Amino acid sequence: MGLFDSIKHAIFGDKGPLGSWDKNKGAAPAPAAPHAPAAPIAPHPQPAAAAPAPAAQAPVDVDVDVEQILTQKAAAYGKPNNWRTSIVDLLTLLGLDSSLQARKELAQELNVHAGADGSAEQNIALHKAVMQQLAANGGKVPASMLD
């Protein structure tokens, strides 16, 4: 499991598998068709009736308000936290490793190649990439964190 999967799990909880967040996980299964009584025997062969189409599963509401969840976590954390712009503070808030090595691995995982390892430029790009990936996986992220 990569660091981004850990970030996603820390924010989304059990909304889906860690590796590939399934938007339909948790959807109620389609109701089974009621048992039909046996058809009477026809004297002449009848054309086969088309099988009814299976009922589509209704998608689960997957909009996870990332900002609200992180704001609540920050309030419970009780310490100043600049998670809105700092990748280090975001990782710390989520209880994840925020070391340079962890951020290098996250940058590689998300294909972020900006600035030197650990530089402000890389950290800003990494935070933006994390927010973009959260949004791509069903998270509701403010536009100000995506630009």
Results as ranks from 00 to 15, higher is better:
77 Y>C: 03
75 A>Q: 13
70 L>K: 03
31 P>H: 07
35 H>E: 14
61 D>F: 07
51 A>F: 08
55 A>M: 09
43 P>F: 09
73 K>G: 01
65 D>E: 14
45 P>K: 08
35 H>N: 08
77 Y>I: 02
75 A>D: 06
29 P>I: 02
33 A>E: 15
75 A>F: 01
31 P>N: 07
80 P>H: 07
67 E>H: 10
44 H>E: 14
75 A>S: 08
56 A>F: 05
61 D>A: 15
63 D>T: 08
57 Q>G: 07
76 A>P: 02
83 W>H: 12
82 N>R: 13
61 D>E: 14
34 P>S: 09
75 A>H: 05
41 I>G: 04
55 A>C: 05
37 P>K: 10
59 P>G: 08
32 A>G: 13
67 E>S: 10
33 A>H: 09
41 I>K: 12
79 K>D: 04
53 A>K: 15
45 P>E: 02
61 D>L: 11
38 A>E: 14
40 P>Q: 12
63 D>F: 09
84 R>M: 09
52 P>E: 06
63 D>I: 03
56 A>S: 12
33 A>K: 14
39 A>Y: 00
83 W>F: 15
51 A>D: 12
80 P>I: 05
38 A>S: 13
35 H>W: 08
42 A>Q: 12
55 A>V: 13
80 P>K: 11
67 E>P: 00
52 P>T: 05
